[in-house]
Design a protein around this nucleic acid. Structure first.
Length: 370
DNA sequence: TATGAGCGA
């Protein structure tokens, strides 16, 4: 439907809506500032589920402006709404020009406070403090209309204090940009992690081990509260080349009877993320193998019990859980046998499927579900 | 520690 131009300019976009926010509710809310011509909550065509945004069309431009000035970040159905001028030109919204990222925000800074502080630098198209059920997550976005306003905000607010917290304020970067940047930084590392050098290693000796590879800026042996070495540390070089040579030359080398581990130093978060990923991978693999090691046995003679089943299948490998399903003390004629590996299970299946046990031939399949 | 979502279905 074509919307008349004079309405278009009195139109606000309302984002971050809860799924249960209705036209009716929004109409009542926005009518408080002036006559509302129409409201539309956008919904999925098929399911009619709210898409989480709406349009409010005022009769008067001044009313739209007043709503924008006074109602942005108001909480509706438990969640702060986000108001912007309706802007159909996707390019203006998506170019990323003027978009600013802020972190290390005090948790008491909400959308309104942030908006107010940053409007000092120019017209804001959209801003928001990222939050969850617990409240602010301590970071935010402010999208300015112009790059020059964004640059002023960065120049003035980066490193400044807001309610006691020293802000980080910088240009917004997409997830991809960010990943690429981290990747690059990792590629020309200058800081080296060393472990497994025993308790008697001190910083002077560690420096002596590493300095043949280049000039060291710092050498640190990590210690516990009582000053005892934890057996690992960090060596920072003045160049990536030196750091790289040190890793190549010293990793796995025997130093004083200990085999050193030497690698690029990671941030704690990066290390933890890597460990978590590895752990998750292992767990998935474990689940997959456990699943493939489980046999579903049907057509059991009623006289066959757990013990008999275990005895028959033990020839093919390490049998774990064995269970003949029962009802009121009687066999239901099927059960499970778990091996320690998929290989054992398939060998058992190949050998035992169709085999006569008691009066009936076994029917065996891989169990479907954990 | 943190680098969205988003335009008249």
């Amino acid at each position: 439907m074509q919307v008349a131009p004079k309405y278009r300019q009195a139109s606000l976009y309302v984002g971050d809506l809860q799924a249960d926010v209705t036209e009716d509710l929004l109409f009542r809310k926005f009518s408080a500032v002036g006559p509302v011509l129409s409201i539309r909550v956008c919904r999925d065509l098929a399911t009619r589920r709210s898409l989480g945004y709406a349009y409010v069309n005022f009769l008067q431009l001044a009313d739209a402006q007043r709503a924008l000035d006074t109602m942005n970040f108001d909480v509706v159905q438990g969640r702060a709404i986000r108001l912007m001028w309706a802007q159909r030109d996707a390019h203006l919204r998506r170019s990323g020009v003027g978009n600013v990222f802020i972190k290390n925000l005090d948790r008491s800074v909400d959308g309104k406070a942030l908006h107010e502080r940053f409007s000092a630098f120019g017209r804001i198209l959209s801003s928001k403090v990222v939050s969850d059920e617990q409240g602010s997550r301590g970071y935010a976005f402010v999208h300015f209309q112009s790059q020059s306003a964004a640059d002023r905000a960065i120049a003035e607010m980066h490193g400044a204090r807001l309610r006691g917290c020293r802000l980080f304020v910088g240009r917004f970067k997409t997830r991809q940009d960010r990943a690429a940047e981290l990747q690059n930084r990792a590629q020309d590392f200058t800081n080296v992690y060393v472990k497994n050098f025993g308790e008697d290693m001190d910083e002077a000796r560690l420096r002596a081990v590493f300095s043949p590879y280049g000039r060291t800026l710092s050498v640190k042996v990590m210690t516990d509260a009582s000053g005892r070495s934890k057996g690992f540390g960090f060596v920072s070089f003045d160049s990536h080349e030196a750091a790289r040579r040190a890793v190549e030359g010293l990793n796995g080398r025997d130093v004083g009877g200990q085999q050193l581990f030497v690698g690029r130093a990671q941030k704690k978060a990066e290390r933890q993320a890597e460990l978590k990923q590895r752990f998750d991978q292992l767990r998935r693999e474990h689940v997959r193998r456990a699943q493939g090691a489980k046999l579903y046995i049907k057509n059991l003679d009623p006289a066959v019990d757990d013990e008999r089943l275990r005895r028959e299948f033990s020839a093919f490998g390490a049998v774990g859980r064995v269970k003949v399903m029962q009802e009121e003390g009687r066999s239901k004629g099927f059960g499970l046998v778990c091996f320690s590996s998929p290989e054992e299970a398939s060998e058992a299946m190949a050998a035992m499927n169709g085999r006569l046990l008691g009066s009936k031939p076994l029917s065996i399949a891989l169990a479907q579900r954990p």
